[in-house]
């Protein structure tokens, strides 16, 4: 089984790399055949990646993020999954190059620094904790993707407004499409993060007998998620679109991820249940 893990560890960055190459070609030439090829390679990459994660999980009897480099692979998988769903819904491949570049980068780093050692945090052997992490990572990936779509929208809108019909104008899809893609990413992010946070609380209840604790990281995550969802609901209710909602996608994800990153950096109590 270790042999398969090692083989897939080499194959994955190659397959994603090929897909990324074709997405770059499509970005440049807008040839539909290239878009199809890149999507096929992305599908194959995703399938192999899922197999890779399942085999790793089964072999090491733990959720497959035993160290930072393994987490990068998990992040690559999450970004690829969310992007795959959005592309399937919108049938728009132009933005694939941006996300696949990130996927390739994460997967290459993860594969290069891959370690066979079976040492891991015992927490990772618990399925409930594994699902909590998987959902949270998927949620954060979706959030980051919606932020990137927000950024693309703002850049393109600025180009059109200023009558700069350059490379961004030529290459990116219409504003409405970018807005829709950002919306789908946000629609993925909200429930995934919500479920992830809820499972985290359940885990806390299981370990300590209480559903909630005054841990700064837990409070920050909960508050940020509530603010994000409330803002999103207000925007939906007012049927807002265009520039404002794209600013929300962009700044919302930046603020959410930045604050969480800061809290994680300055506090050391996160996910310690001993």
């Amino acid at each position: 089984m270790l042999f398969f893990i090692q083989i897939l560890n080499i194959i994955l960055p190659i397959v994603y790399g090929i897909s990324c190459f074709f997405y770059a070609q499509y970005f440049r030439s807008k040839n539909e055949k290239t878009a199809h090829t890149s999507f096929v390679f992305l599908t194959v990459g995703l399938f192999l990646h899922l197999v890779f994660m399942l085999i790793k999980g089964y072999h090491f009897q733990s959720f497959p993020i035993r160290n930072s480099f393994a987490s990068l692979s998990m992040l690559a998988l999450d970004i690829a999954i969310v992007y795959y769903i959005i592309e399937r819904i919108k049938k728009e491949s132009t933005t694939g190059i941006f996300f696949l570049s990130i996927v390739v980068f994460f997967q290459v780093v993860s594969s290069l620094f891959y370690q066979v050692s079976s040492d891991h945090d015992p927490l990772l052997s618990n399925p409930m904790f594994g699902v909590h992490i998987a959902l949270a990572l998927l949620g954060f990936s979706s959030l980051a993707i919606s932020g990137l779509y927000g950024l693309m929208y703002l850049m393109l809108a600025k180009e059109i407004k200023k009558r700069h019909f350059g490379i961004i104008y030529d290459a990116l899809p219409p504003l409405e499409t970018l807005s829709d893609m950002g919306k789908y990413a946000t629609i993925c992010a909200i429930p995934l993060l919500g479920l992830g946070i809820f499972l985290g609380h359940c885990w806390h209840y299981k370990m300590r007998g209480v559903f909630f604790t005054l841990d700064p990281k837990i409070i920050t995550t909960d508050v940020l998620w509530i603010i994000y969802v409330s803002t999103w609901l207000i925007i939906q209710r007012r049927k807002m679109s265009g520039m404002l909602i794209s600013m929300f996608y962009f700044w919302g994800s930046i603020v959410f991820l930045f604050i969480l990153g800061m809290v994680k950096f300055f506090s050391s109590t996160f996910h310690r249940f001993d």
Binding site: L156, I160, Y169, P174, L175, E176, T177
Partner: peptide, 9 residues
């Protein structure tokens, strides 16, 4: 063409 860069459908 400009309209097509703003609206999809």
């Amino acid at each position: 063409e400009l309209a097509r860069k703003i609206f999809t459908n």
